[in-house]
Nucleic acid binder design. Structure first.
Lengths: 128, 128
DNA sequence: CCTTGACCTTCCCCTTACTGGAACCCCCAT
DNA sequence: ATGGGGGTTCCAGTAAGGGGAAGGTCAAGG
Protein backbone atom coordinates (compact mmCIF):
# COMPACT_ATOMS: atom_id res chain seq x y z
CA UNK A 1 0.00 0.00 0.00
CA UNK A 2 1.21 3.46 -0.86
CA UNK A 3 0.87 6.40 1.48
CA UNK A 4 -2.29 7.68 -0.20
CA UNK A 5 -4.08 4.42 0.40
CA UNK A 6 -3.19 4.19 4.07
CA UNK A 7 -4.04 7.87 4.46
CA UNK A 8 -7.52 7.22 3.17
CA UNK A 9 -7.99 4.09 5.25
CA UNK A 10 -6.64 5.55 8.48
CA UNK A 11 -8.24 8.96 8.18
CA UNK A 12 -4.86 10.66 8.56
CA UNK A 13 -3.24 12.89 5.95
CA UNK A 14 -0.13 11.84 4.06
CA UNK A 15 1.68 14.72 5.75
CA UNK A 16 0.75 13.42 9.16
CA UNK A 17 1.85 9.90 8.30
CA UNK A 18 5.23 11.14 7.09
CA UNK A 19 5.52 13.09 10.32
CA UNK A 20 4.71 9.98 12.35
CA UNK A 21 7.47 8.18 10.51
CA UNK A 22 9.85 11.09 11.22
CA UNK A 23 9.25 10.81 14.93
CA UNK A 24 9.48 7.05 14.88
CA UNK A 25 5.88 5.97 15.45
CA UNK A 26 5.76 3.88 12.28
CA UNK A 27 8.52 2.35 10.17
CA UNK A 28 7.17 1.46 6.73
CA UNK A 29 9.36 -0.45 4.27
CA UNK A 30 10.38 1.14 0.98
CA UNK A 31 9.82 0.02 -2.58
CA UNK A 32 12.65 0.10 -5.11
CA UNK A 33 11.39 3.47 -6.32
CA UNK A 34 11.62 5.00 -2.85
CA UNK A 35 7.88 4.94 -2.20
CA UNK A 36 6.79 3.93 1.29
CA UNK A 37 5.33 0.42 1.30
CA UNK A 38 2.90 -0.05 4.17
CA UNK A 39 1.90 -3.48 5.34
CA UNK A 40 -1.25 -4.33 7.24
CA UNK A 41 0.50 -4.08 10.57
CA UNK A 42 1.58 -0.49 9.91
CA UNK A 43 -1.89 0.37 8.71
CA UNK A 44 -3.36 -0.94 11.94
CA UNK A 45 -0.93 1.13 13.94
CA UNK A 46 -1.95 4.23 12.01
CA UNK A 47 -5.62 3.52 12.60
CA UNK A 48 -4.80 3.07 16.27
CA UNK A 49 -2.95 6.40 16.28
CA UNK A 50 -5.78 8.14 14.50
CA UNK A 51 -8.28 7.01 17.12
CA UNK A 52 -6.03 7.70 20.08
CA UNK A 53 -5.28 11.23 18.84
CA UNK A 54 -9.01 11.80 18.32
CA UNK A 55 -9.49 10.92 21.98
CA UNK A 56 -7.05 13.62 22.95
CA UNK A 57 -3.98 11.55 23.75
CA UNK A 58 -0.73 13.38 23.09
CA UNK A 59 1.85 11.98 20.73
CA UNK A 60 3.92 10.84 23.69
CA UNK A 61 0.88 9.13 25.20
CA UNK A 62 0.38 7.45 21.86
CA UNK A 63 3.98 6.30 21.85
CA UNK A 64 3.43 4.62 25.23
CA UNK A 65 0.09 3.16 24.21
CA UNK A 66 1.53 1.84 20.99
CA UNK A 67 4.34 0.12 22.85
CA UNK A 68 1.73 -1.54 25.06
CA UNK A 69 -0.41 -2.31 22.02
CA UNK A 70 2.48 -4.18 20.46
CA UNK A 71 3.46 -5.94 23.65
CA UNK A 72 1.25 -9.01 23.89
CA UNK A 73 2.25 -9.55 27.51
CA UNK A 74 1.40 -6.06 28.80
CA UNK A 75 -0.71 -5.63 31.89
CA UNK A 76 -4.00 -3.87 31.31
CA UNK A 77 -3.28 -1.81 34.44
CA UNK A 78 -0.58 0.10 32.55
CA UNK A 79 -2.99 1.06 29.82
CA UNK A 80 -5.73 1.94 32.26
CA UNK A 81 -3.45 4.29 34.19
CA UNK A 82 -2.59 6.28 31.06
CA UNK A 83 -6.23 6.38 30.01
CA UNK A 84 -7.36 7.58 33.43
CA UNK A 85 -4.80 10.38 33.41
CA UNK A 86 -6.09 11.44 30.03
CA UNK A 87 -9.65 11.35 31.36
CA UNK A 88 -8.69 13.64 34.21
CA UNK A 89 -7.05 16.07 31.84
CA UNK A 90 -10.16 16.12 29.72
CA UNK A 91 -12.25 16.81 32.79
CA UNK A 92 -9.99 19.68 33.77
CA UNK A 93 -10.24 21.21 30.32
CA UNK A 94 -14.01 20.89 30.35
CA UNK A 95 -14.15 22.60 33.74
CA UNK A 96 -11.92 25.45 32.57
CA UNK A 97 -13.96 25.93 29.43
CA UNK A 98 -17.14 25.83 31.47
CA UNK A 99 -15.90 28.66 33.66
CA UNK A 100 -14.94 30.68 30.59
CA UNK A 101 -18.32 30.00 29.10
CA UNK A 102 -20.20 31.17 32.18
CA UNK A 103 -18.28 34.41 32.50
CA UNK A 104 -18.45 35.19 28.84
CA UNK A 105 -22.10 34.34 28.36
CA UNK A 106 -22.94 36.53 31.32
CA UNK A 107 -21.10 39.43 29.71
CA UNK A 108 -22.73 38.76 26.36
CA UNK A 109 -26.16 38.69 27.94
CA UNK A 110 -25.60 42.07 29.55
CA UNK A 111 -24.54 43.66 26.30
CA UNK A 112 -27.17 45.46 24.25
CA UNK A 113 -25.32 44.78 21.03
CA UNK A 114 -26.53 47.89 19.29
CA UNK A 115 -24.92 51.00 17.81
CA UNK A 116 -24.20 52.63 21.14
CA UNK A 117 -20.65 52.73 22.47
CA UNK A 118 -21.74 51.50 25.88
CA UNK A 119 -20.43 47.93 26.23
CA UNK A 120 -20.52 45.76 29.37
CA UNK A 121 -18.17 43.23 27.77
CA UNK A 122 -15.34 45.72 27.43
CA UNK A 123 -16.14 47.11 30.85
CA UNK A 124 -15.98 43.62 32.31
CA UNK A 125 -12.63 42.98 30.68
CA UNK A 126 -11.11 46.31 31.62
CA UNK A 127 -12.37 46.62 35.15
CA UNK A 128 -9.53 46.57 37.67
CA UNK B 1 6.57 51.39 36.31
CA UNK B 2 9.13 48.82 35.28
CA UNK B 3 8.19 45.56 33.62
CA UNK B 4 8.33 43.61 36.89
CA UNK B 5 5.75 45.84 38.49
CA UNK B 6 3.26 45.64 35.63
CA UNK B 7 3.86 41.90 35.43
CA UNK B 8 2.83 41.54 39.03
CA UNK B 9 -0.17 43.84 38.69
CA UNK B 10 -1.46 42.35 35.45
CA UNK B 11 -0.81 38.72 36.29
CA UNK B 12 1.27 38.26 33.15
CA UNK B 13 4.94 37.32 33.07
CA UNK B 14 7.63 39.76 31.97
CA UNK B 15 8.33 37.44 29.06
CA UNK B 16 4.74 37.60 27.93
CA UNK B 17 4.66 41.37 28.18
CA UNK B 18 7.78 41.69 26.04
CA UNK B 19 6.16 39.36 23.56
CA UNK B 20 3.03 41.53 23.52
CA UNK B 21 5.21 44.52 22.75
CA UNK B 22 6.93 42.56 19.98
CA UNK B 23 3.64 41.86 18.26
CA UNK B 24 2.43 45.42 18.77
CA UNK B 25 -0.25 45.02 21.43
CA UNK B 26 1.38 47.50 23.79
CA UNK B 27 3.89 50.26 23.16
CA UNK B 28 5.56 51.28 26.43
CA UNK B 29 7.90 54.28 26.51
CA UNK B 30 11.54 53.82 27.39
CA UNK B 31 13.63 55.35 30.15
CA UNK B 32 17.07 56.76 29.42
CA UNK B 33 18.63 53.46 30.54
CA UNK B 34 16.58 51.46 28.03
CA UNK B 35 14.13 50.07 30.59
CA UNK B 36 10.49 49.95 29.53
CA UNK B 37 8.46 52.65 31.28
CA UNK B 38 4.81 51.65 31.55
CA UNK B 39 2.10 54.21 32.21
CA UNK B 40 -1.31 53.49 33.68
CA UNK B 41 -2.89 53.22 30.27
CA UNK B 42 -0.53 50.46 29.21
CA UNK B 43 -1.06 48.67 32.50
CA UNK B 44 -4.82 48.74 31.93
CA UNK B 45 -4.35 47.32 28.46
CA UNK B 46 -2.25 44.49 29.90
CA UNK B 47 -4.88 43.73 32.52
CA UNK B 48 -7.45 43.72 29.75
CA UNK B 49 -5.31 41.33 27.72
CA UNK B 50 -4.76 39.07 30.70
CA UNK B 51 -8.50 38.72 31.27
CA UNK B 52 -9.40 38.32 27.63
CA UNK B 53 -6.78 35.59 27.16
CA UNK B 54 -8.09 33.84 30.27
CA UNK B 55 -11.50 33.79 28.60
CA UNK B 56 -10.03 32.02 25.62
CA UNK B 57 -9.82 34.86 23.13
CA UNK B 58 -6.96 34.43 20.68
CA UNK B 59 -4.28 37.08 20.35
CA UNK B 60 -5.91 38.29 17.15
CA UNK B 61 -9.27 38.48 18.89
CA UNK B 62 -7.55 40.49 21.59
CA UNK B 63 -6.09 42.82 19.01
CA UNK B 64 -9.58 43.52 17.68
CA UNK B 65 -11.08 43.86 21.14
CA UNK B 66 -8.29 46.19 22.20
CA UNK B 67 -8.90 48.41 19.19
CA UNK B 68 -12.57 48.59 20.16
CA UNK B 69 -11.61 49.10 23.80
CA UNK B 70 -9.59 52.14 22.83
CA UNK B 71 -12.19 53.51 20.44
CA UNK B 72 -14.64 55.49 22.54
CA UNK B 73 -17.13 55.61 19.68
CA UNK B 74 -17.27 51.85 18.97
CA UNK B 75 -20.63 50.14 18.69
CA UNK B 76 -21.25 47.47 21.31
CA UNK B 77 -22.56 45.25 18.49
CA UNK B 78 -19.01 44.81 17.19
CA UNK B 79 -17.79 43.61 20.54
CA UNK B 80 -20.79 41.37 21.04
CA UNK B 81 -20.26 39.69 17.70
CA UNK B 82 -16.66 38.75 18.56
CA UNK B 83 -17.69 37.55 22.01
CA UNK B 84 -20.50 35.42 20.61
CA UNK B 85 -18.15 33.78 18.13
CA UNK B 86 -15.82 32.98 20.98
CA UNK B 87 -18.72 31.54 22.96
CA UNK B 88 -19.63 29.27 20.07
CA UNK B 89 -16.04 28.08 19.79
CA UNK B 90 -15.99 27.29 23.49
CA UNK B 91 -19.22 25.35 23.11
CA UNK B 92 -17.76 23.35 20.24
CA UNK B 93 -14.68 22.50 22.25
CA UNK B 94 -16.78 21.43 25.21
CA UNK B 95 -18.87 19.20 22.96
CA UNK B 96 -15.77 17.61 21.42
CA UNK B 97 -14.22 17.03 24.83
CA UNK B 98 -17.50 15.60 26.07
CA UNK B 99 -17.54 13.05 23.25
CA UNK B 100 -13.92 12.11 24.01
CA UNK B 101 -14.79 11.78 27.65
CA UNK B 102 -17.74 9.49 27.02
CA UNK B 103 -15.82 7.17 24.75
CA UNK B 104 -12.78 7.04 26.95
CA UNK B 105 -14.62 6.59 30.22
CA UNK B 106 -16.57 3.77 28.67
CA UNK B 107 -13.32 2.05 27.69
CA UNK B 108 -11.79 2.67 31.10
CA UNK B 109 -14.83 1.23 32.81
CA UNK B 110 -14.59 -1.95 30.75
CA UNK B 111 -10.94 -2.45 31.60
CA UNK B 112 -10.06 -4.68 34.54
CA UNK B 113 -6.83 -2.81 35.15
CA UNK B 114 -5.01 -5.80 36.54
CA UNK B 115 -1.93 -7.80 35.59
CA UNK B 116 -3.57 -9.64 32.73
CA UNK B 117 -2.73 -8.68 29.15
CA UNK B 118 -6.37 -8.55 28.16
CA UNK B 119 -7.25 -4.86 27.64
CA UNK B 120 -10.51 -3.48 26.23
CA UNK B 121 -8.95 -0.02 25.86
CA UNK B 122 -6.35 -1.22 23.38
CA UNK B 123 -8.94 -3.39 21.68
CA UNK B 124 -11.22 -0.40 21.34
CA UNK B 125 -8.47 1.70 19.84
CA UNK B 126 -7.24 -0.95 17.45
CA UNK B 127 -10.54 -2.30 16.28
CA UNK B 128 -11.04 -1.64 12.53
C1' DC C 1 6.72 6.85 -28.24
C1' DC C 2 5.30 10.81 -25.90
C1' DT C 3 2.64 13.37 -22.97
C1' DT C 4 -0.45 14.39 -19.25
C1' DG C 5 -2.00 14.16 -14.72
C1' DA C 6 -2.00 11.99 -10.44
C1' DC C 7 0.92 10.36 -7.16
C1' DC C 8 5.20 10.11 -4.66
C1' DT C 9 9.82 12.05 -2.64
C1' DT C 10 12.62 15.46 0.29
C1' DC C 11 13.29 20.00 2.08
C1' DC C 12 12.34 24.12 4.32
C1' DC C 13 9.52 27.57 6.34
C1' DC C 14 5.08 28.77 8.90
C1' DT C 15 1.79 28.38 12.52
C1' DT C 16 0.19 29.73 18.32
C1' DA C 17 1.48 31.88 22.21
C1' DC C 18 4.59 31.88 24.49
C1' DT C 19 9.01 29.80 27.63
C1' DG C 20 13.90 29.07 28.69
C1' DG C 21 18.47 30.37 28.48
C1' DA C 22 22.79 32.94 27.35
C1' DA C 23 25.24 37.05 27.46
C1' DC C 24 25.20 41.39 28.85
C1' DC C 25 23.83 46.07 31.25
C1' DC C 26 22.16 48.79 35.35
C1' DC C 27 21.19 50.23 40.06
C1' DC C 28 21.46 50.06 45.02
C1' DA C 29 23.38 48.49 49.36
C1' DT C 30 27.18 46.94 51.80
C1' DA D 1 34.28 46.91 44.57
C1' DT D 2 31.14 43.62 44.84
C1' DG D 3 27.05 41.15 45.15
C1' DG D 4 22.34 40.54 44.07
C1' DG D 5 18.35 41.51 41.87
C1' DG D 6 16.47 44.08 38.53
C1' DG D 7 16.56 45.00 33.36
C1' DT D 8 17.94 44.31 27.98
C1' DT D 9 18.50 41.63 23.46
C1' DC D 10 18.59 37.60 20.73
C1' DC D 11 18.40 32.60 19.73
C1' DA D 12 16.18 28.29 20.09
C1' DG D 13 12.50 25.35 21.19
C1' DT D 14 7.77 23.75 22.16
C1' DA D 15 2.94 20.49 19.76
C1' DA D 16 1.53 18.66 15.87
C1' DG D 17 1.55 19.11 11.89
C1' DG D 18 0.32 22.46 7.20
C1' DG D 19 1.85 24.74 2.83
C1' DG D 20 4.29 24.74 -0.97
C1' DA D 21 8.54 24.25 -4.03
C1' DA D 22 11.36 21.29 -6.89
C1' DG D 23 11.65 17.12 -8.73
C1' DG D 24 11.08 11.67 -9.55
C1' DT D 25 7.47 7.91 -10.99
C1' DC D 26 3.60 5.50 -12.83
C1' DA D 27 -0.44 4.38 -15.72
C1' DA D 28 -3.49 5.69 -19.38
C1' DG D 29 -4.46 7.77 -23.76
C1' DG D 30 -3.28 9.62 -28.45
Amino acid sequence: MNIGTVAERSGLTAKTIRYYEDIGLVKPLRDANGYRAFQDKELHKLIFLSRARALGFTIEDCRSLLALYEDETRASADVKRIAKEQLMQIEQKVAALGAMHDTLSHLVKECAGDDRPDCPILEGLGRG
